[in-house]
Simulated scan of single mutants.
Amino acid sequence: MPVADEALATRLADRMLEVERALAGHVRSRAPFVTSAASHLMEAGGKRFRPLLVLLAAETGANPDSDDVITAACVVELTHLASLYHDDVMDEASLRRGAASANARWDNHVAILTGDFLFSKSSELTAELGADAVRIQARTFTRLVEGQIQETVKPGAGEDPLEHYLDVVAGKTGSLIATSARYGARFGGATPEVEEALTAYADIVGTAFQLSDDILDISADAAESGKTPGTDLREGVPTLPVLMARASAGPQDARLLQLLDSDLSDDALHAEALTLLRAHPAVEQARAYVVARAQEAKALLAVVPEGPVRDALAIFADHVATRTT
């Protein structure tokens, strides 16, 4: 997360060290094997975007150094980590964060149960934050799981595929990021008005973050992004540019539509589809949509006091919309 103010960046870095130390303790079990499995993805790295957002949102309140802020940061990161274990089983993924996924290193049973263990640890910590936090976490988890389930089913008859997909992303990704901002604002002592604004801001930015990934999957250069282009395309996963291309397709797009409905595990067909999609106006349309969502999120920051915290939140919204990695 880009933070221009040096003092704020230093405070956040110091607090993130506290979060990392706390997380290392929370994934420990009395059984060494469970500790090893639960530590696996955490030690592989990750952006730690959600706990960092908790800390940044807390800076809008009177008590940003509250111990509850650290606890809340651990809650959202443990929830996120738990969901990754389950995601990898559903996706039959072999890699996560450059390392073997838990299901590949052990098996699906271990991965699922390790995810359950992390969810339970997250729940224990949430209980320390009080009944309201438990209620917020439960609602967040409901949205997250609903999004995950919706992703496995096709849109119903008469349902807009793009709206269906955006609803999936809002549930799977936006919900926990929104709660990260809510927890930070609440336990940092921000006003209710600021808490609500930051929650809405983060819901939008969280969704935009995933949509940016969609665009990178099509447009990014492998050397720059560190990702293999067209992975979702090859696997037939519907993403924002693909759905927009389908929605706006004309007679000139017949070959692209034919390819999108084909088995793109074939390297030549995959390369042709990626080339056609990169040249399609839908990619720029998708970029414009994400930039517009970022602007919408930034407008919600008007109630946050002017200063480095608001600046950092605004810069981050822009960064999400235009990122290349």
Score class of each variant (00 low, 15 high):
Leu113Asn: 11
Thr207Ile: 02
Gln295Ile: 02
Thr325Trp: 12
Ala249Cys: 08
Arg135Trp: 11
Thr324Gly: 06
Leu12Trp: 03
Asn103Cys: 14
Ser248Lys: 12
Thr71Lys: 14
Val194Gly: 10
Ala208Ile: 11
Asp214Ile: 12
Gln285Asn: 12
Arg143Asn: 13
Ala38Tyr: 00
Thr114Arg: 02
Met16Tyr: 02
Thr322Lys: 10
Ala297Thr: 05
Tyr289Trp: 12
Leu216Cys: 08
His319Arg: 13
Glu159Ala: 14
Pro155Tyr: 06
Asp203His: 14
Ser175Gly: 10
Leu125Asn: 11
Leu176Ala: 10
Ser94Gly: 15
Pro32Leu: 01
Pro229Asn: 10
Gly25Leu: 05
Ser39Asp: 01
Ala254Cys: 01
Leu259Gln: 08
Leu53Pro: 10
Pro192His: 07
Ala279Gln: 13
Leu277Arg: 03
Leu211Ala: 08
Ile204Glu: 07
Asp116Lys: 03
Ala131Phe: 14
Ala100His: 13
Glu92Tyr: 01
Arg21Trp: 00
Gly174Phe: 13
Ala62Trp: 00
Arg278Gly: 05
Asp318Ala: 07
His80Lys: 10
Gly46Met: 04
Ala102Phe: 00
Gly61Cys: 05
Pro241Thr: 12
His86Trp: 12
Ala268Ile: 04
Thr231Lys: 06
Ala302Pro: 01
Ala312Leu: 07
Lys121Tyr: 02
Phe49Gln: 04
Gly46Cys: 07
Ala99Arg: 15
Thr142Gly: 14
Ala249Ser: 13
Ala22Glu: 15
Gln258Asp: 15
Ser262Glu: 15
Ile177Arg: 04
Asp14Leu: 14
Glu77Ala: 12
Asp91Asn: 11
Ala321Met: 03
Gly46Glu: 02
Ala312Asp: 04
Gly147Asp: 12
Glu43Cys: 00
Val134Tyr: 09
Ile215Tyr: 11
Thr179Arg: 08
Ala299Cys: 01
Val205Ile: 15
Leu216Ala: 07
Ala190Leu: 05
Asp261Leu: 03
Arg293Ala: 15
Ser219Tyr: 03
Glu6Asn: 04
Gly184Ile: 09
Val110Cys: 05
Val283Ile: 05
Thr179Gln: 15
Arg287Val: 11
Ser225Thr: 14
Glu284Cys: 00
Arg278Pro: 07
Lys172Met: 08
Lys298Ile: 15
Val153Pro: 00
Arg96Val: 11
Ala73Ile: 08
Ala73Met: 10
Ser265Pro: 01
Ile70Gly: 10
Ala202Ile: 02
Val291Leu: 03
Pro64Gln: 04
Asp132His: 15
Arg11Asn: 04
Met1Cys: 08
Asp318Lys: 06
Asn103Trp: 02
Met1Pro: 14
Ala13Met: 01
Leu301Tyr: 09
Ala170His: 12
Arg48Ile: 04
Asp261Asn: 13
Val89Gly: 12
Arg21Ser: 10
Ala302Arg: 11
Ala202Arg: 09
Ala200Thr: 12
Glu196Pro: 01
Leu264Phe: 09
Ile215Lys: 12
Ala157Leu: 10
Thr114Val: 14
Lys121Asp: 00
Thr79Arg: 06
Leu81Trp: 01
